[in-house]
Structures are given as structure tokens and as C-alpha cells.
Design a protein around this nucleic acid. Structure first.
Lengths: 238, 238
DNA sequence: CGTGATCTTGAGGGAATTCAATGTCGGTGG
DNA sequence: CCACCGACATTGAATTCCCTCAAGATCACG
């Protein structure tokens, strides 16, 4: 099972540190991207694309944290298995999200593709080398870490809430990632949601149906949630 | 009443701390520290010492995050008050610990002295300026952030456990900070512990007595816990 | 000592889990 | 095409764990 993942890019991923474009923006569009997100741009330039089928491991807990990842398409979950078999999900990552940022030498969490997924992979050492030359990259890495920290701190606040508050918060969190629509397409199973929220699958299910009964949401299919009343959800989210 | 627990800590008016002067380390001991921990040393060199009495606010949520703090003596808690009055404690900081590291412009949490406390205070802007020149300082700041992130991730794992597991984990965590002894001197109240672990004060108290009954710990005074059987505690911590 | 704050203990209730059964959906082969 | 299967989801009933409310015990401090 180790090698169901496949390299889809033949491009050399040995990076030659040529910070082109940083000081000489040429086109408006390009400039905008670079100025806003030099890290993303660097990853795109340096990264190799890899594909992982659904439910396949991208990296495992305790493996050396050699790479940084960015989701191109599909979705990824990070998680940790506790001694007694319980699983805690660290986060869900959708296209554009960066994951695999670690501070110890080894990964604290495992990562798995939730659906068939393409990711950009970049060697940490290469990225560090660029960061050493380009302060804006270093700054972005730092900022990315800070955002991750804030995200995790909010999870702590979530985990002390009631089941209904957790589920409502979760739906609003997911909805923020698809701003255009009022519906959420869940790429994760009820079990994933439960392990993310620190609840059981039954409680998640019951809470969702109760939210539907309360006319706060609609559940046309189990993986699709329509937000009918965001105000109510917001109130319920604690 | 909604909020008795947050009222118990007493006055919430802002204390204006006294500036005691700049610490100027000159001893050999500090030189040794310098090699191992350039960040700590820089803070010592640049920082001003401030004193805060017990239960007095050091900074408040949403205030601009201008400073970085290092505990010299005493103890500090960071916390956030939720809409309905619940309080979540972000962390406890003991001598040597750094707190106040933020990524947004404003503090996400408030900080209070749990006991009479002395802290070193350093302007972020000054520290950033040093970091820009000295890569080892920048690296230390980054590492410090990474450690904070790991700490918070472990808290998430803690919050999905049972009450007994949480309390056992908490005791072991506190014990790690006083490696010499087999006893833990708690600088925080039961309410603080409860708000840290996402439990009620009664559950914390009951769990502690049950651990004592099980001969895993001793409780000579309410603020002093003797670890009688670390193996058992470890097993109980999940 | 008395007083308030903190901590412990008890009884009862409620929210979430556990255990168990049923329902739904997508795929696969007869 | 439909019947069957397995994976996933929902629903129900009983139980457990923790919270709430309430009372007492202990501690710190004047």
C-alpha cells in the first residue's frame, strides 16, 4: 500500500534559488499574486505534484518531517491515533491549504487523502534555503505558523462547547471555505466529523437532524448541507 | 447568576505596574545561558522588569500585542472569556516561560498574574529589529512559536479524554516542570484547573480525591500534590 | 475566633455515549 | 435490470459520566 501514490510531474524539483520576479514585477496580475502570497508562489515554483487515492496515507506520525504540502485538488485530513484506538482529527485541508508544517523533526500527526487528491510537495530544506535569502518567504512561513496556531486555539474553544454548539460551529467553519454558496459539500464522513469535534458519530448525526428539524439547515444528501438560517446557526454556535 | 466563577478572582480593574528598571546580567552564569538560549538572553538584556500583584491583569484580550513577556518569578495564566461567561484557560506560565507571543496585532487571550509575579517585558518591535539582524534570534522566535503550537495541539488531545484522564495528564504535565521532586506545588486554584481542563471545579476535586483513594497521589494540602505512583498516573492519562 | 474564599462531598438530573437495530446509497455480479 | 452486498448514516433504548445545585468542611487572614 505504500506506493499507490504516484508522481505525476517529471519536472525537476531541485530548486535553483533564482528569486526572479521578486524585485522586478512585470505584470499586474503576477505582481498581485506575488505580493500577496510569495510563499504560495514559491511552493508552486519549487513543488512537485503528487497524487494520492482516497484513504491513502500521505505521511505517518513520527516520520521525519521532510516536506511541506499544499493541496491542489481533493481534500486531506491530519490525525492522531490514541493508545486505546480513539482518533483525533487535527484538521481538514482543502485546495489552497498548506499542511505538514512541523517544528519537531518528526510529524506529530499523520495525513491521509480523504478523496482522490493532488498535492504540491516541497522539500523543507529547500524552502528553508529560500527563506534564508528571501525575508518575505521567511515571514510568510512564520505567518502561516501563526495562523495555524490561531486555528488550533479556536479548536480548543470549540472542544469545551456542547455538541450542538460544536456541530453548528463546524458547519459555519466549513461554509466559510465555500463563500459563494449557501451550501456545504462535505468531503469527510460522519466519523471524520465526529473525530474532529470530539463527539461520536451518533451524536453528530442526531445533532444534524435536530438542526434540520429546527429549520436551521437542510440535508438533501448526507454529504451536502444547506445553511437555511445562518443567524440561528451563529446563535447556536455559542 | 451566569458568571460567579469569573467573579471569584476579585477586582478586574487595571493595575498600573511599576517599572523596576532594566536588568543587566553580567555574571558567568548568564554567559553560559547566552550560548544555549540567545532569545532568553536577548530578552534579559533588552527587557524591563515589571511586578504584578496576584490576580491583576497583565494584558487584556484585543489589546495591541506590543510586548513579549518572560516570567521571572511567580506564575501567570492566559485565558479567554466566552460569550456566556465560561472561561477557558490558555496556559499556565512559570518562571522561565515566555508568553504573549501573538500573530495578530491584538492579543487573542488575556493574561493575569496568578500569584505576585515579576516578568521581563520586551517590545516586540525591538525584538523584531534584533531578529532581523541576528538569525539565531529569529530562529529562536520561530522555534518558540512551534513549541507553543505543539503544546496547544496536545491540549486538544487532552480535551477529548475523560475527566480522570485529563486530571492525570494535568498532574503529569505539571510534574514535568518540577523535575527534581515527586511533588507538585500548584500555583493555581481548582477553578483555574477546571477552566484549563474543560471540567467543573467539583469534577476536578472529586477526581483528585478518587486518585488519592486509588493511592496514585497524595494531597497533603489542597495546593500540594504528591505523585505516589507515576506508572498508574501514566496509565490513567490515556 | 469570625468571616469570606476555597475546597470537598452529596444527591439528582441531563447530555452524550454505548449498544443495537434499521435505513440508505452506490457499486457489482447474476 | 434488479438483487445483493458492504459502507455509511440514522434512529432508538439504556447507561454512564459529568454537571448542577446544595450543603458542609477547611483554610487564610483580619
Amino acid at each position: 500500500m505504500l506506493d499507490t501514490r504516484t508522481m505525476t510531474t517529471g519536472q525537476s524539483h531541485r530548486f535553483v534559488p533564482q528569486l526572479r520576479g521578486v524585485s522586478l514585477p512585470s505584470s499586474r496580475a503576477c505582481d498581485a499574486v506575488r505580493v500577496r502570497d510569495p510563499l504560495a508562489d514559491t511552493i508552486s515554483l519549487m513543488g512537485a505534484t503528487m497524487s494520492y487515492p482516497r484513504n491513502v496515507e500521505i505521511y505517518g506520525e513520527n516520520e521525519p518531517a521532510e516536506f511541506l504540502y499544499k493541496v491542489v485538488s481533493g481534500s486531506v485530513r491530519t490525525y492522531k491515533i490514541l493508545g486505546d484506538g480513539r482518533r483525533q482529527i487535527g484538521g481538514f485541508y482543502l485546495p489552497g491549504d498548506i499542511f505538514g508544517l512541523e517544528f519537531a523533526d518528526a510529524h506529530a500527526l499523520s495525513a491521509e487523502a480523504m478523496t482522490d487528491t493532488k498535492v504540491l510537495v516541497v522539500k523543507r530544506s529547500a524552502l528553508d534555503a529560500v527563506a534564508a535569502r528571501d525575508a518575505s518567504i521567511a515571514q510568510q512561513l512564520f505567518a502561516q505558523t501563526g495562523r495555524e496556531l490561531q486555528r488550533v486555539q479556536e479548536r480548543i474553544l470549540l472542544l469545551i462547547k456542547s455538541a450542538q454548539e460544536r456541530v453548528a460551529s463546524f458547519l459555519l467553519e466549513m461554509a466559510e471555505r465555500e463563500p459563494a454558496s449557501n451550501a456545504v459539500e462535505l468531503s469527510m464522513s460522519r466519523q471524520d466529523i465526529a473525530d474532529y469535534l470530539g463527539l461520536t458519530i451518533e451524536t453528530v448525526s442526531r445533532t444534524l437532524t435536530s438542526l434540520e428539524t429546527a429549520a436551521a439547515i437542510g440535508i438533501p444528501t448526507s454529504r451536502r448541507i444547506v445553511l437555511r438560517n445562518r443567524g440561528a446557526l451563529n446563535r447556536m454556535s455559542g
